[in-house]
Computed example of a mutant assay.
Amino acid sequence: MAMRNFYKEIKGLKVKELPGYLKPMFSVSYAKNAFQRGLDNYHAKYIETSSIDPLYHVCFGGMALSYLLALPEERRHLEHLQHAREHGGH
């Protein structure tokens, strides 16, 4: 949805106008404001409504993070097993 709105906004601009339009979006203050708006929207949508969804977000986010952090070790382990099978070990 945000990409669609962004596209609608820049669709009418000329190429020369585009850098001037995009430059303020790459400032620290713009990023802080965008992050704060996102937190405010999340709070209004989930926290204020006493929804159980934030608990799901924490659980599934923790699972995904755990998987991603363990992935390099698992890949090394699987490569070691494959190498051992090729050379008669294990």
Rank of each mutant, 00 (worst) to 15 (best):
M63K: 04
Y67L: 12
P24I: 08
H80Y: 11
Q82W: 06
S51F: 09
E73A: 14
H77A: 06
H77N: 07
I47F: 04
H87Y: 07
Y21A: 00
F35L: 15
R4I: 14
H90E: 12
K16S: 11
P72Q: 07
I10M: 03
G20F: 03
N41K: 15
G38K: 08
E17N: 02
G61N: 02
K11Q: 13
L78Y: 08
L55H: 05
V28C: 04
N5L: 13
H43W: 14
G89N: 12
F35D: 03
Y67D: 04
H77C: 01
S50W: 10
L68K: 03
L18N: 02
A34G: 03
P72C: 01
K11R: 14
Y7V: 11
L22F: 06
L22C: 03
N5H: 12
Y67F: 12
L65M: 09
A44K: 15
V28D: 05
T49S: 13
L71H: 02
K16Y: 01
H77V: 02
R4K: 15
E48A: 12
A64E: 04
K45I: 02
L22E: 02
G62T: 10
F35Y: 14
G20E: 04
A34T: 15
A2S: 14
K14E: 13
C59F: 15
F60E: 07
L55P: 01
R85T: 06
E86R: 14
F35P: 01
G88Q: 05
F26W: 05
G61M: 03
E74W: 08
V15H: 04
H57T: 05
G20N: 09
Q82G: 02
K23E: 05
A34S: 15
A31D: 09
E9G: 02
F6P: 02
P19W: 03
Y21F: 15
G89P: 00
T49A: 08
Q82A: 12
Y46R: 05
L55E: 06
G62V: 05
M1Q: 09
R75H: 08
K8N: 13
P54C: 06
L55K: 11
G61R: 06
A31Y: 10
